[in-house]
Deep mutational scan, measured.
Amino acid sequence: MGFKLLSKLLVYLTASIMAIASPLAFSVDSSGEYPTVSEIPVGEVRLYQIADGVWSHIATQSFDGAVYPSNGLIVRDGDELLLIDTAWGAKNTAALLAEIEKQIGLPVTRAVSTHFHDDRVGGVDVLRAAGVATYASPSTRRLAEVEGNEIPTHSLEGLSSSGDAVRFGPVELFYPGAAHSTDNLIVYVPSASVLYGGCAIYELSRTSAGNVADADLAEWPTSIERIQQHYPEAQFVIPGHGLPGGLDLLKHTTNVVKAHTNRSVVE
């Protein structure tokens, strides 16, 4: 069995187990497998329904001669939608809004960016022009300005110390501490036991640490421990890039980060 097929099978099995364990909360999309990078042309966006009122959005972007996937989250909030992270750029984010209108038909009224990198804030200006209120932590807003990236308009308070959590509509926002970046936030959907790890969490097929220019490698494993301790009931975990899975993604990420750190020390 090929690795790609095995990865998709694991996603399907995880979703099936969740649907059985929580039949009222989960209505997993039966329309197909989780979209992969090879299936999404740059400039297009796919939506994948995880649970009743919960979707991931998947886009792709060219970077350094390669094409990478990027995940975000959409959560229903009454007759409105909360968006977590842009679709990595203005063109993708405009396509995301169009796809949401086509498939869901509810307005996106608020959006949260989970850290300051372009795959999370690139497209904020498109959201703002569409009347979406954009939010991020003060740290993310400051770092985005320093980096020359787009800056969300509103500040999220109460997320300055490791372990801080605040309720934001249908989700809980959690600051686990520094990891992929010093400002990275985690998003949890309690009604569906869905954990969105953003770039602080890796997919299972990833074996290298990737972009760690703004990471705190020493603190990252401790931050992941905080996530595990705060959300032990999480059933569906979405990484910032690639295929979702279960809580095993947290341990896998820790292993990859520690291996990278150990290699760096040896070198």
Results as ranks from 00 to 15, higher is better:
Pro35Trp: 09
His115Ala: 00
Tyr34Asp: 06
His230Val: 09
Asp248Tyr: 13
Leu13Phe: 05
Thr222His: 14
Asp64Asn: 03
Glu203Trp: 04
Gln103Gly: 08
Arg141Trp: 03
Asp214Val: 09
Val121Met: 09
Thr222Arg: 10
Leu247His: 11
Glu39Pro: 08
Tyr196Ser: 07
His230Met: 14
Ile151Pro: 01
Leu143Glu: 09
His252Asn: 14
Trp220Val: 10
Leu5Lys: 03
Cys199Thr: 01
Tyr175Met: 13
Met18Gly: 08
Glu267Gln: 02
His241Asp: 03
Pro107Glu: 09
Val256Ala: 11
Thr254Met: 06
Asp64Cys: 13
Tyr12Pro: 09
Pro239Trp: 06
Pro176Gly: 14
Trp88Glu: 00
Asn255Met: 11
Val212Ala: 06
Ser191Pro: 11
Thr222Glu: 10
Gly78Cys: 03
Leu143Met: 02
Asp248Ile: 05
Phe236Val: 09
Glu203Thr: 15
Leu5Arg: 12
Arg110Gln: 08
Pro35Thr: 05
Tyr48Gln: 14
Ala130Gly: 06
Asn149Cys: 03
Glu39Met: 07
Val42Thr: 13
Val124Asn: 10
Glu80Gln: 12
Val187Tyr: 01
Ile40Thr: 05
Ala90Pro: 13
Arg167Asp: 10
Gly210Met: 11
Arg128Gln: 13
Asn149Pro: 03
Leu195Glu: 13
Ile58Asn: 02
Gly177Ala: 01
Leu10Asp: 12
Gly32Val: 02
Ala94Pro: 00
Gly122Met: 01
Gly210Ser: 08
Gly89Val: 04
Tyr12Asn: 05
Ile17Ala: 03
Val75Trp: 02
Met18Ile: 04
Pro176Glu: 01
Pro170Phe: 01
Ala25Ser: 04
Lys251Ala: 06
Gly169Arg: 07
Gly89Pro: 01
Ser264Ala: 07
Ile100Trp: 00
Ala130Pro: 02
Thr140Ser: 03
Gly72Leu: 01
Pro239Arg: 04
Gln49Ile: 06
Leu185Asp: 01
Asp118Gly: 13
Thr109Leu: 11
Asp248Ala: 04
Arg226Lys: 01
Lys4Arg: 05
Asp125His: 01
Thr114Ser: 10
Ser223Pro: 04
Gly240Met: 02
Thr222Asn: 05
Ser22Arg: 06
Leu5Ser: 06
Gln229Trp: 12
Asp29Gln: 07
Ile50Asp: 08
Asp52Phe: 01
Ser7Asp: 13
Phe174Leu: 07
Ile20Met: 01
Ile50His: 14
Lys102Glu: 05
Glu147Pro: 14
His117Gln: 00
Phe63Met: 05
Leu5Pro: 07
Glu150Gln: 15
Glu267Lys: 03
Lys251Cys: 15
Glu219Pro: 11
Thr207Arg: 09
Glu33Cys: 13
Leu249Glu: 14
Pro41Arg: 06
Tyr188Val: 12
Leu47Arg: 09
Leu82Lys: 02
Val171Gln: 01
Thr140Gly: 11
Thr114Arg: 00
Ile50Gln: 10
Pro69Trp: 03
Thr134Gly: 12
Val42Trp: 08
Ser162Glu: 05
Gly148Pro: 02
Gly158Ser: 07
Ala59Lys: 03
Val237Trp: 11
Gln235Thr: 02
Trp88Tyr: 04
Leu10Thr: 08
His57Met: 01
Val54Lys: 10
Val265His: 03
Ala95Gln: 08
Ser161Ala: 11
Ile58Cys: 05
Pro23Arg: 10
Val266Ile: 08
Ala179Val: 04
Ala234Asp: 15
Thr254Glu: 14
His260Lys: 01
Ala129Ser: 13
Glu267Cys: 13
Ile238Cys: 12
Ala129Val: 14
Gly240Asn: 05
Gly131Phe: 00
Ile238Asn: 05
Ser155Leu: 00
Val121Glu: 01
Lys8Arg: 06
Trp88Cys: 01
Lys251Glu: 06
Tyr196Glu: 02
Gly245Lys: 12
Gly89His: 10
Pro152Val: 04
Ala218Thr: 10
Ile224Asn: 12
Thr60Ala: 04
Ile58Thr: 06
Asp119Ser: 01
Phe168His: 09
His230Asp: 15
Glu101Asp: 14
His230Arg: 07
Gly131Lys: 15
Gly122Leu: 15
Glu44Thr: 06
Gly123Ala: 05
Ser160Arg: 08
Leu173Trp: 11
Leu247Asp: 02
Met18Lys: 02
Asp64Tyr: 09
Leu204Ser: 12
Thr86Tyr: 07
Ala218Arg: 13
Val212Asp: 09
Val124Gln: 14
Ile40Asn: 02
Glu233Lys: 11
Gly131Trp: 11
Ser30Thr: 14
Val45Trp: 07
Tyr188Asp: 14
Ala87Trp: 00
Pro221Gln: 12
Lys91Ala: 12
Gly89Lys: 12
Pro176Cys: 12
Arg110Ser: 11
Ile58Met: 11
Gly65Tyr: 15
Thr153Lys: 08
Leu204Tyr: 04
Trp88Val: 03
Thr207Ile: 15
Gly245Ala: 08
Phe26Thr: 03
Asp125Met: 14
His241Ala: 01
Val265Ala: 08
Leu217Asp: 01
His180Ile: 00
Gly72Met: 07
Thr261Ile: 09
Ser155Ile: 00
Glu267Ser: 05
Glu157Gln: 14
Ile74Gly: 05
Glu80His: 13
Pro23Trp: 02
Ala19Pro: 15
Glu233Cys: 06
Leu96Gly: 07
Val67Phe: 13
Val112Tyr: 01
Gly65Ile: 05
Lys258Ile: 14
Tyr196Thr: 13
Val256Met: 15
Ala234His: 02
Asn184Asp: 07
Thr261Glu: 07
Glu172Val: 13
His252Arg: 05
Asn211Lys: 07
Asp164Asn: 13
Asp79Phe: 08
Gly43His: 06
Asp248Ser: 13
Asp52Gln: 12
Ala165Thr: 08
Phe174Val: 11
Ile238Trp: 13
Ser160Phe: 06
Asp164Pro: 07
Asn262Arg: 06
Arg110His: 14
Phe63Leu: 06
Leu243Val: 13
Ala179Glu: 02
Pro232Ser: 07
Gly53Met: 07
Leu73Trp: 00
Asn92Arg: 13
Asp85Ala: 00
Leu82His: 15
Arg141Cys: 10
Ile84Leu: 11
His154Ala: 04
Asp214His: 09
Glu233Tyr: 07
His241Gln: 01
Leu127Val: 14
Asp119Asn: 05
His260Ala: 06
Tyr48Gly: 11
Asp119Arg: 01
Ile104His: 00
Ser264Gln: 14
Asn262Val: 11
Gln61Phe: 04
Leu10His: 11
Asp52Ala: 06
Leu47Gly: 08
Thr93Ser: 13
Pro190Phe: 15
Pro232Arg: 12
Ala215Pro: 12
Arg142Gly: 08
Leu106Trp: 10
Leu13Thr: 06
Val256Trp: 13
Leu243Pro: 02
Ala218Leu: 05
Cys199Gly: 10
Asp119Tyr: 02
Ile227Arg: 03
Gly72Asn: 05
Ser181Phe: 01
Glu39Asn: 15
Ala15Arg: 03
Val124Phe: 00
Phe236Gly: 10
Leu24Asn: 04
Arg167Ile: 02
Ile84Ala: 13
Ala51Glu: 08
Gly197Lys: 03
Ile224Lys: 01
Thr93Ala: 06
Pro35Gly: 09
Glu147Asn: 15
Asp85Gln: 00
Pro69Met: 12
Glu150Cys: 00
Asp118Gln: 01
Phe3Ala: 03
Ser162Ala: 08
Gln49Asn: 06
Gly2Asp: 14
Val45Met: 08
Arg46Ser: 10
Thr114Glu: 00
Glu39Gly: 07
Pro35Ala: 09
Gly210Pro: 13
Arg141Phe: 05
Lys4Tyr: 10
Leu249Ala: 13
Gly242Asp: 09
Ile84Asn: 01
Phe3Ser: 04
Gly210Leu: 05
Phe168Gly: 02
Ala59Ile: 08
Gly163Met: 13
Glu33Gly: 06
Ile238Asp: 04
Glu267Trp: 07
Val11Arg: 11
Leu250Gln: 04
Glu225His: 00
Leu81Gln: 01
Tyr48Ala: 03
Glu219Thr: 10
Arg142Leu: 02
Pro69Thr: 08
Leu243His: 14
Leu97Arg: 02
Ser162Trp: 09
Pro138Ile: 15
Val265Gly: 09
Thr254Lys: 05
Asn92Gly: 13
Thr14Leu: 12
Asn211Tyr: 15
Leu127Lys: 04
Leu127Ser: 09
His57Trp: 11
Gly148Ile: 08
Val121Phe: 14
His230Gln: 06
Arg76Asp: 07
Asn262Asp: 11
Glu267Phe: 06
Tyr135Ala: 07
Leu47Thr: 10
Ser205Met: 13
Ser137Met: 07
Ala200Tyr: 14
Val187Gln: 01
Asp216Ile: 15
Arg167Val: 04
Glu157Trp: 14
Leu106Cys: 15
Pro170Val: 09
Ser162Phe: 05
Gly198Glu: 04
Ile74Trp: 01
Trp88Ile: 00
Gly242Ser: 13
Gly240Pro: 00
Gly105His: 02
Val28Leu: 05
Asp118Ser: 14
Thr140Glu: 08
Ala51Trp: 10
Ile238Lys: 03
Leu5Thr: 11
Ile238Pro: 02
Thr14Val: 09
Gly131Gln: 03
Ser191Ile: 04
